[in-house]
Design a protein around this nucleic acid. Structure first.
Lengths: 202, 202
DNA sequence: CCCCATACTTAACAGTGTTAAGTTAGAAGC
DNA sequence: GCTTCTAACTTAACACTGTTAAGTATGGGG
């Protein structure tokens, strides 16, 4: 049998695959996303996917890309509501955490368990990725806070990575340890941000 | 064919399985640990393992248990070298982070990706686990630091979880994002601990 | 000496990502 | 209009995975 009869609802099969994959991935995560399930969902054979994506990793990277852009946008737009350098930073940190909690599967693949899964084949690992973009916004906030005399002077990279550790920590704990008896979520997020920022204040 | 000829080197097969599994797991992590590889390593058929462990999860839990005890011991013994409540806490935090970095696969399974993998079947999720034990030491340090007037008064659980978020954050970042251009490791760990503790100081 | 339980085995199921080879439909050339 | 070629799909298969069902041999107890 040859290719499926084309219908008027046919867009690119490539986009159709991405849409199906995203649906499964968002609902059930990486482990439950299988090529055969995607294929069944779109009504093609599993191998048809390989005509449009090199492997599962590349398919999933595509699925995540839009979420990454959304993360960057969310941070950037939250930052624009900040009144001063410190407020700009805080707004960005909250946006990062809330994005992660709201998109747990995307956050998991992108930041929690990217080791052998995604972005490893990429030689330009972090170049141009969402992590890179978000991190650059954070670094510039650190620079601004130091220049404004809000933060003590220090190595911008080290300070930025320290902050990243904190917000990544709370985000991944909230995502992965659902059963742990955390205190009220927003209060805890507040505490993490305020404590970290407070520890850097002049 | 019946059971393998018993040799003088035969201990419990159960222990033999655990030893083989640990070797593979420590070297290559959860994903590369397969029942068939364990079986091959010990010279039995794959199904022999199921006579001693209910499933892969239970086998791996056994493998991790000893590491958990070592984590608790490392933290407890580091804390004993502390000179005051704050120093006791800091020594424990450093011990936690260093244990994670030194035992990445154990840390990953126990704290980073425990969702559907390990400890989920357990109804008593965190009861008596290593996380529980370590967290209790942290909580008691927080109580002590508040009592000594070192920390501002506040919700002990919230403060403890805030600290945990920070040290879990740096530990998991260092483990999972090997390629990220972090600043010098010990300096960064120091910065995380000092910043977090500093943000809580009265 | 026989029976039987214990401890293992082989075979198989249902699933995974992925590749090689086969088929079919439509476009291009004459 | 007929042939040829190519792009897009298919089926079959490989090498794995965790796990279960059923078969088998061995050593101990009656």
């Amino acid at each position: 049998m040859g290719p499926r009869a084309k219908t008027d609802t046919d867009k690119d099969l490539r986009q159709e695959i991405i849409d199906a994959a995203r649906e499964i991935f968002v609902a059930e995560g990486y482990d439950h996303l299988s090529m055969r399930r995607v294929a069944e969902k779109i009504g093609y054979s599993p191998t048809a996917i390989y005509l449009h994506f090199r492997d599962k990793t590349e398919l999933l990277r595509e699925v995540c890309e839009e979420a990454f852009i959304k993360l960057g946008d969310a941070i950037a737009s939250a930052r624009r509501t900040g009144k001063d350098p410190l407020d700009v930073m805080k707004k960005g940190l909250f946006a990062y955490i809330h994005f992660g909690v709201a998109n747990p599967h995307h956050y998991e693949v992108a930041f929690i368990s990217p080791k052998d899964k995604i972005f490893r084949s990429d030689e330009s690992s972090y170049e141009g990725s969402a992590g890179q973009r978000a991190f650059e916004m954070l670094s510039s906030s650190v620079t601004d806070c130091i220049a404004a005399g809000i933060f003590r002077p220090g190595d911008v990279a080290k300070i930025s990575q320290t902050i990243w550790a904190s917000i990544h920590g709370i985000t991944s704990l909230l995502i992965m340890h659902e059963k742990f008896p955390f205190v009220e979520r927003e209060a805890l997020i507040d505490s993490v941000v305020e404590t970290t920022v407070g520890g850097l204040t002049a």
